[in-house]
């Protein structure tokens, strides 16, 4: 474990907590893409499937973190699609998730480390996570604005994988550890946030709200 991965995981936890709090406190999921949250839930379930297969005691924080990620993302989907369904902005959350899921699944079958079920599920999860934020960014471009708390959520969510890139550089240099698939997908994922990062740093940090040219 290194400082980059630690802060990356903390940033990821923060993102999940910020979103949950926003929906729970405001009792509304306006401005939140339900599709993105569904895709994240699928990512966690397919990536941590080992938890369900051979359930090992919660002997380390990693197992606990995996369970937190899965349960928090499923709970977030429950809030969006059931509890606060009335506030779900289905009209603007209109990116076709199939256009992300099918290519990720296809690519996972073509480019993977080993052609076996668990490894392909892990690879699918990595590819899907890289593009899972697109429906959320698409929704913001459609509505033309993002609530400040949603911007903080996106900043934390984007920073997590950006910090992982630093973690991979660190591990390459000090542990000669390379996980090419995760690195390439992580770079693509972080690049997708660049536009948002620019808006966040130039606006939200100064207390302004993000309003995209409609």
């Amino acid at each position: 474990m290194n400082i980059f991965r630690l802060f990356g995981d903390l940033s990821h936890l923060a993102a999940i907590a910020i979103l949950l709090l926003k929906i729970w406190k405001t009792r509304s999921c306006a401005g939140v893409s339900g599709k993105t949250q569904l895709l994240f839930a699928v990512c966690f379930i397919t990536r941590y499937i080992d938890l369900f297969l051979h359930f090992v005691s919660l002997y380390n924080t990693e197992k606990v973190m995996k369970l937190i990620y899965i349960s928090a993302s499923v709970f977030t989907c429950y809030l969006i699609f059931f509890k606060f369904k009335a506030t779900y902005d289905g009209n603007h959350d209109s990116m076709r998730a199939e256009f992300l899921i099918v290519p990720a699944a296809g690519l996972a079958c073509l480019i993977n480390t080993k052609f076996d079920a668990i490894e392909i599920l892990w690879t699918f999860s990595i590819y899907l996570e890289a593009v899972a934020i697109l429906p959320q960014l698409f929704l913001i471009s459609k509505t033309g604005e993002a609530e400040t708390i949603t911007s903080h959520y996106l900043f934390a969510q984007g920073s997590y994988r950006a910090l992982y890139i630093l973690n991979w550089i660190y591990r390459y240099h000090y542990e000669s550890h390379v996980d090419t698939i995760a690195i390439v997908a992580g770079v693509v994922q972080t690049i997708l946030y660049c536009d948002f990062f620019y808006l966040y740093i130039t606006k939200v940090v100064k207390g302004q709200k993000i309003v995209l040219p409609a």
Partner: peptide, 10 residues
């Protein structure tokens, strides 16, 4: 690539 198959990151 170190060839290990389990992925030790979240």
């Amino acid at each position: 690539d170190n060839g290990q198959l389990y992925h030790d990151e979240l």
